[in-house]
Computed example of a mutant assay.
Amino acid sequence: MIQSDEFLLELGQLTEQSVMCLAPSFKALPPSDYLDGAYRLRRFSHFRIQQGVLTRLPTKAFVQSGDINTFQGSVERIYPEIEDDVTETAAFQNMLMGFKAKAGVSDDQSIEVHQMRIIANNDALTEAAPEGVHQDGFKSLAVVVIERSNIKGGEIQVHTAKDSAPFISHTFDNGEFVVLNDQRFWHSATGLEATQDEDAYMDAFVLTA
């Protein structure tokens, strides 16, 4: 038997009440001037949880090295903050505290949160992960899919190596999530295609620490 105290991966599900609470806020996500800004609408904030209390940290730019993100690495990206009406809900706070507990995030570590809507069209595939198979450069990562609307594709995939086939490929929806060790695994997502002309999208939170 292989034994390890290191966190590896866990699948889970938010409550139906949490999904219903969080889903409407994605309608207010703004576009940006970055390479993916027309089809990946986003807000970004980071937090610390100390003694069970969630605290928003000062606004900062989001940047990844070009070695990690070959799509738009080494670019300082500044997104609007996630709205207080979202972060002050029990649903949002429970999501972050669950991530902290599952991934073993310490009180002195910050948790970065991307709130994202990926818009699909029926003319061509929309790349949900234009970086391809990648790591985000953190210790732990979670993808929480809140809602899918009028799309096909967009499966979240987890790989043991950059050049390996996925051992998880699943159409996450309605609060389903994966938490994984970002130093041990790689992840990707298949392209999205609209099944109707309007309201075709995938809404998700991505958490890193």
Results as ranks from 00 to 15, higher is better:
1 M>I: 10
2 I>M: 13
3 Q>K: 15
8 L>P: 01
10 E>P: 02
14 L>I: 00
14 L>W: 01
15 T>Y: 07
18 S>H: 14
18 S>A: 15
26 F>E: 10
31 P>M: 05
42 R>F: 00
46 H>V: 04
48 R>I: 06
54 L>C: 11
63 V>R: 13
68 I>R: 01
68 I>A: 06
70 T>P: 04
72 Q>F: 03
78 I>H: 13
78 I>L: 15
83 E>D: 15
85 D>S: 13
86 V>P: 01
87 T>L: 00
92 F>T: 02
100 K>L: 10
107 D>M: 07
115 Q>V: 07
122 N>R: 14
129 A>D: 02
133 V>I: 14
133 V>R: 10
137 G>A: 04
144 V>F: 11
145 V>Q: 02
146 I>E: 05
150 N>H: 15
155 E>C: 13
158 V>Y: 04
159 H>W: 12
161 A>S: 15
162 K>T: 01
163 D>P: 02
164 S>Y: 01
164 S>M: 07
170 H>S: 12
170 H>I: 12
172 F>P: 02
176 E>Q: 15
179 V>T: 10
179 V>P: 01
183 Q>N: 09
183 Q>G: 11
189 A>E: 06
189 A>I: 11
192 L>K: 06
192 L>D: 05
194 A>G: 10
196 Q>L: 07
197 D>H: 03
200 A>L: 13
202 M>V: 15
205 F>R: 10
207 L>E: 03
